[in-house]
Amino acid sequence: MFTYNPKPHFLNNKIILVTGAGDGIGKEAALNYAHFGATVILLGKTVKKLEAVYDQIIANGGAEPAIVPLDLAGATPSHYAGLAGSIEHQFGHLDGLLHNASMLGDLGPFLDISQEDWQAVMQVNVTSQFNLTQALLPLLKKPQTSSLVFTTSGVGLKARAYWGAYAISKFATQGMMEVLADEYENSGIKVNCINPGGTRTAMRAKAYPAEDSSLLKTPADIMPYYLYLMDAENCVEHGETLHAQA
């Protein structure tokens, strides 16, 4: 069984950006990173949710986070370039990037995948990650060590019928991680994937509406994995996929 007991404040003075930080796993990760000392950049599309996470971090005594309202479905490379410029101006560097935001899309037969659904899922799950990573890599290269974490899925590792564009997008995510890990093999950037497994989130409920969610692990239950992968100084994995519910 995986055990990881981080030292108190091991993320002090670290700057970490989390996508999809307003809800579910992204919210829990942001709260945990802040709890251990990081200044968290909260990126998401719903300002009200981001403000609620901001308030919770402040109430818990964490460092003041930054809020970045951005809808990945409509974001362009210029948006990400502007974000990178703002982060560099305000913080000077970036210690961690967690790609958490994803879109499920429609589940069903391959022949029924619409152009609209395909484009939307690929934009959020693949293209936005490509653009954001490309924009922020120069900032991740500035510290001596940093962490780049992608979120995959069981259906992105072993194909499953009727999971359509979502499954294909997660195979692309896995490939993106592996390409970057190979390129940065001899650098200070640790590049990995995490597969959270069946977790009590809104996306899981949409995919399995008849499931008893009380039987699922909560985002808080799997946080040791997310903390470990952000501990670039002690994490030994690089180019690997960690399964939070192996």
Rank of each mutant, 00 (worst) to 15 (best):
E240S: 15
A66D: 11
Y33D: 04
T201Q: 00
V179M: 13
A75T: 10
G82A: 15
T173A: 11
H79M: 07
G96T: 03
K7F: 14
A81E: 15
P138I: 12
Q123N: 08
L17V: 14
L98A: 04
H89R: 14
K206C: 07
P109L: 10
P224G: 01
A210Q: 12
F171R: 05
A159D: 04
N100A: 04
F36D: 04
E88V: 07
L97V: 08
T145E: 13
P69V: 09
N60W: 03
H238L: 06
I15D: 01
D112P: 06
K141D: 11
V18P: 00
N186A: 13
A38H: 01
G164Q: 00
Y166P: 04
A167F: 10
K206E: 12
A81S: 15
S128N: 09
D117C: 07
L17E: 03
G154T: 05
K48C: 08
L17N: 05
A167V: 09
P109G: 11
V191Q: 00
A81N: 13
R204Q: 07
Q119R: 14
G24M: 05
I113K: 06
F36R: 05
F36P: 04
V53K: 02
T76R: 14
E233K: 13
K170M: 06
G164R: 00
N5D: 15
L132T: 09
N195I: 09
N186F: 14
Q144H: 11
A181E: 06
V53R: 02
P143W: 03
V149N: 00
A167N: 06
P219N: 01
L140Y: 05
G20N: 03
P8S: 15
A30E: 00
T199G: 00
E233C: 10
L72P: 03
K217Y: 12
T201P: 01
M103T: 14
R200Q: 10
N5V: 15
E211H: 07
A135S: 15
A21Q: 01
A52V: 04
T218R: 10
K206R: 12
V68E: 01
L17S: 05
L43W: 02
Q119L: 09
V191F: 03
E28I: 04
V179F: 14
T39C: 12
E240I: 12
Y4E: 05
E183W: 10
L94H: 02
K45L: 14
N100H: 09
V191P: 00
Q129P: 02
D112I: 08
P65V: 01
D95V: 03
N13E: 15
P6S: 13
N192S: 13
A205P: 07
K49E: 04
Y54E: 04
R160Q: 10
I113D: 11
A59G: 10
A202D: 09
Q144V: 14
